[in-house]
């Protein structure tokens, strides 16, 4: 972003960003590790790891229950859980690990500080919403929803789909990207005049890092909440 060199590579005729691939893989492995180590020795009487996992499952199910009708929550539970865990770790990882190559190209940061990643998740949500709507209501009822409350609403309905897609993806990107950028600015301040600015910048950095961690959690929560709202809109026939 902002004019810095970006490390890319070509594979099968497609362009890949090294940072996104590396960060995505790291988050992927982190999620698998968290899930693996908390799901050992499952028992009727839960122990530490299982307690945490069950709390997390209840939490994401709670988000989904907030908007999706009770009968359909079960189908989206796994999706909501995976989405929340992946986005949460994606938001937080860039606050602690940022790696750049010698040429200045970042290769490790939050995956969600790149719009292509957040828009990918946003697109997945929109497609899932369409798919779930067709599955639940059938093609006819699903697409006549676009003509409600009256036929001329169609352009607005289509436009709304597009804006939902954009706002959902860009909201999380904006918060995470700006958070990391400000961390970078504070870091530049810290190294600008030796030890004095280092001492001054340390509490600011800590405060902003804490705030960004909080924002990262909020954004993951908001993303899952809004996703479930968009899905729930497709699950019912509008009056």
């Amino acid at each position: 972003m902002n004019g810095e060199p970006v490390s890319t590579f070509q594979f099968l005729g497609l362009t890949f960003s090294t940072a996104n691939i590396v960060a995505g893989s790291v988050v992927f492995l982190l999620v698998v590790a968290v899930i693996f180590f908390t799901s050992r020795k499952l028992a009727m009487k839960p122990t530490k790891g299982q307690n945490f996992l069950e709390w997390l499952i209840d939490f994401t199910n709670g988000i989904l229950k907030g908007s999706i009708p009770a009968g359909d929550v079960g189908k989206f539970g796994l999706w909501g859980f995976t989405l929340f865990l992946f986005l949460f770790l994606s938001n937080e990882i860039g606050l602690f690990i940022q790696v750049a190559t010698r040429s200045g190209a970042t290769i490790m940061r939050s995956p969600t500080s790149d719009p292509i990643v957040t828009l990918t998740f946003s697109l997945m949500t929109m497609m899932l919403a369409q798919f779930a709507g067709v599955m639940k209501l059938g093609y006819k009822a699903h697409f006549t929803n676009y003509l409600k409350p009256f036929v001329f609403w169609l352009p607005i309905s289509i436009f709304e789909e597009f804006t939902n897609f954009l706002t959902l993806g860009l909201r999380i990107f904006g918060v995470i990207f700006s958070g990391e950028m400000l961390l970078g600015v504070i870091w530049n301040l810290a190294v600008s005049h030796g030890i004095v600015t280092m001492i001054v910048a340390l509490p600011i950095e800590m405060a902003w890092q804490g705030f960004s961690a909080f924002l990262g959690a909020i954004q993951a929560f908001v993303f899952v909440t809004l996703s479930s709202v968009y899905i729930s809109q497709k699950l019912e026939v509008e009056g």
């Binding site: 497609l14 960003s17 995505g24 539970g77 292509i116």
Partner: peptide, 29 residues
């Protein structure tokens, strides 16, 4: 430049992750 490859990478890894979570944790828990 937009990296379309990343989209495919993330979609695949997300689906793979969902599958792994289902097998490892979601189902049993």
């Amino acid at each position: 430049t937009l990296y379309y490859g990343d989209t495919i990478f993330y979609v695949i890894s997300f689906i793979l992750l969902m599958w792994i979570i289902k097998v490892l944790a979601w189902g049993p828990v």
